[in-house]
Computed example of a mutant assay.
Amino acid sequence: MVAQQAAAQAAPRPDSDVPESMRAAVMFGPGDIRVVDKPVPRPGPGEVLVKVSVCGMCGTDLKIYDGHFPGTPPYGSYTPGHEWSGTVVEVGETVDEVAVGDRVCIEAHHGCGRCENCMAGLYTCCLNYGDVAKGHKASGMTVDGGFAEYAIHHVAALSRMPTNVSDLDAVLITTAGTGLFGIDMIGGYLLGQDVVVFGPGPVGLMTAQAAKQLGARQVILVGTRDSRLARGRDLGADHTINARQSDPVAEIARLTGGEGADVVIETSGNVAAPQQCVEAVRRGGTILVVAFYPEPVTLDLSAVVRQGVQVHTTRGEGGNNVRRALALADMGRLRGEELVTHEFQLDDIAEALRVVRERDGDPLKAVIRF
């Protein structure tokens, strides 16, 4: 049986060197993920087949693993993974933007391209979300993703990678796109402003870097783990605050001359953080929320209104901001690879999920390497 599987995997397609089958992680139920053989998909019009080099793992993958993420395909065939990069091995009809051999990274979301939100660049809020027949695909969320040797994605959601951007960098490029999209939607103008970032996880650390590169006067990073705060200082944060050791609101007030921050960005997902954002922002300032929460949160909305504070939310990496993040990385202004702390083989994906959930060994970004 093993020999037959190996032979099937090695058998090339009639028109290429791509095998007919591949190893892929498949969800069979909540908490049940297995590595099995699956057919290698063929790209349709506008699609690209990529040999995956690396696929990152984040909190969304834990929600998917637990069965708490809406819109995923049926159990027994579905492969998650939405932070991946690799090399183009086949292209579908009409594709001339990339070629076989190109290294690419992805935007997880490809909107339908026909609804009002997509036409406005808000494809992470596509009005046809999850409707594959109308063209929407969210890699690893509503369609198969990158925890597999090969993955399909639409060419519009792929970007060619410069030679000086590594595969591990690319995993964090999608993450950086999340922060940049949020900054874009609040005006994209941080020059001379005081910016606070709650949560020194991958999104927070990439967002803090981006804020500094976009001209923030000072970037203040708030978290609870000294190791991550230290990483934030290495990446350019001007000040870090351990919320377990001091009151972050009081410290932010001190660092901003008692006025509060111009922009407060919440990336932590801690249910107490939104109210701290309200207390930390200046009158007339801006709060940006890009996190998901395990339960409803409580905040003083009357204070928000009295202070004339603008509250914005964004989901994912819309507005072409992955390509902007890639440009910053190409210029050496966004550092991603050093955030990768744990690497696993595909066969060990269940162990990788356990490590991320239990924070075993203080993982910052865990990836599956192929």
Rank of each mutant, 00 (worst) to 15 (best):
M1I: 02
A3Q: 14
A8T: 03
A10F: 14
P14T: 14
S16Q: 09
S16M: 00
D17G: 11
P19L: 01
F28C: 02
G29F: 12
V35F: 05
P41I: 08
M57H: 15
G67N: 07
T94W: 08
V95F: 06
V95L: 05
V100E: 09
G101H: 00
E107Y: 05
H110C: 08
H110L: 05
C112D: 06
C118S: 07
C118Y: 06
C118I: 08
Y123F: 11
C126M: 03
N128I: 09
A133I: 04
K137P: 13
T142P: 10
G145S: 05
A148Y: 05
V155Y: 01
L158D: 07
R160F: 13
A176S: 10
G182L: 00
L191R: 00
F198C: 03
F198L: 06
G199Q: 12
P200K: 10
P200Q: 09
Q209N: 02
Q213W: 00
L214S: 06
R217S: 15
V222D: 12
R225L: 10
G236L: 06
D238V: 13
H239C: 03
A250L: 08
A250W: 02
R254P: 15
V263S: 07
Q275A: 08
E279N: 08
E279S: 11
A280N: 11
G285S: 12
I287F: 04
D300V: 14
R306M: 15
G316E: 00
E317K: 04
A327M: 12
L328H: 04
R333A: 11
L334Y: 06
G336V: 04
E338I: 14
T341Y: 05
E351R: 13
V355F: 07
